[in-house]
Design a protein around this nucleic acid. Structure first.
Lengths: 233, 233
DNA sequence: CGAACTGTTGAGAGGCTTCAAGCCTAGTGG
DNA sequence: CCACTAGGCTTGAAGCCTCTCAACAGTTCG
């Protein structure tokens, strides 16, 4: 499980696409590029662990990661998936707390590490950066609040349908409406907050009801409107 | 249900106790005081509603409010309770979204309204203010993430025990270890994410097990360590 | 004093979890 | 090349936790 770090291409290390950095001055952006460290991580690699002290935050330029908390009996609760354009680990950094989640690579990924010092420098010198950062955290907080309500009030069936739709919106579909992210049944369960067996049974039912089609881990959407109704949206 | 607004005393309108404003310059603090509008709200008053556009955020200098989302069939999901020293409505304001929660007074409260313009002014001119604000949002986000894990993985019994302990830590106990916040069974249920009847039954069990004592809405803590164990903390 | 709201208790139903067993697939090593 | 293993996937059965429905007592308030 040794973390295999390769050097990514220049293109993959480019941060100019990130909204967060749009308002930086040329000088600030140059400093950012100077301070950053970009690496390639293979599937299964852990970027940081719950309880660890972080030295910076990460910008994702390629790949997919899952962010989860470890609950009762070591059961994972997936908080969110992140992909290109997302940033992680900034929460614990800003609140000066230990990491409250673990970040694990699901799909080979390229991450750029930005040191805490650089983050502080930007906050101190560029109010538009702070403002943008505030917006990012606030949006994530809304999503968390929404999720609390869902998980507390909806049935497992409704939640699973909702999670599938959420994945559809956040990750690409190919031309046959098939989800381009490969998750185990257990990961789906850890996202919905239920048992693996329940996910399996419900997926089968969804398939019988012609809402989706299944081919191993490939999930193909057949009837999104109906799925919306099942999700009670 | 017309909102009865009285003028609070000067003391109740004082914001100097708020950590958030500690690093303001004298001039900035003066501006803040000039821009603020403080009012007294009676129990049952609604400060803002889910879906509404907000004109500023509020600092609570007295009383208690519940912040909740409206879920399936209008069932409330209480996100948190706030009290003196807390701020509300800043999330939607900063992310420029409509309010995603409703804020309702539980215990007669005094709130100071700070206009959006003033918030922006502070963000633009005082990086320490922005930084502090970032920390507040980030902490709240951690709490939300923790809550997601709890609600997804714990039983109703565990969650109720945890909520009681959370209330104990956030609101005062009198000298007989009795909780100084009066909630209906339904509100407790809406916090735990369960049915009112379940809360009633479980509270009775807790009482039988000598964990707590009940007198109407008064909850008295008899055995906190045991309650901790029940909560699986 | 009724109306409306809150609290309580019981019964029944059902959604989900857990346990257990077996299948399938991919990767490994002989 | 094939047996072997480990991990993921699937299905069935049993049972419990929790919800819903329903009835009723207590409380507050106009």
């Amino acid at each position: 499980m040794r973390s295999t770090i390769k050097r990514p291409t220049d293109e993959e290390a480019d941060l100019s696409g990130f909204q967060l950095f749009k308002k930086l001055t040329d000088q600030e952006f140059a400093q950012l590029n100077f301070d950053k460290t970009c690496s390639l991580y293979k599937k299964g690699n852990i970027i940081y662990r719950e309880g660890s002290r972080l030295t910076g935050f990460y910008c994702i330029t390629r790949g997919i990661l899952k962010i989860f908390k470890t609950g009762i009996d070591g059961k994972e609760q997936i908080i969110r998936f992140v992909k290109k354009g997302d940033i992680i680990a900034y929460r614990s950094l800003l609140s000066q707390e230990l990491a409250c989640t673990t970040a694990k690579v699901i799909d080979e990924a390229v991450l750029c590490h930005i040191p805490y010092q650089t983050l502080l420098y930007l906050i101190q010198n560029n109010w538009q950066f702070s403002h943008h950062m505030l917006q990012i955290v606030c949006r994530e907080l809304r999503e968390a609040n929404d999720y609390i309500t869902d998980i507390a009030q909806k049935t497992v069936r409704e939640r699973l349908a909702e999670v599938l739709l959420l994945l559809k919106d956040n990750f690409n579909l190919d031309n046959t409406n098939t989800l381009q992210i490969s998750l185990t049944r257990e990961e789906l369960a850890n996202m919905v907050g239920t048992a693996t067996e329940s996910v399996i049974r419900l997926l089968s039912e969804f398939k019988q009801d012609k809402l989706i089609d299944l081919q191993g881990r490939k999930i193909k959407f057949l009837d999104v409107p109906k799925l919306n109704r099942v999700a009670n949206l």
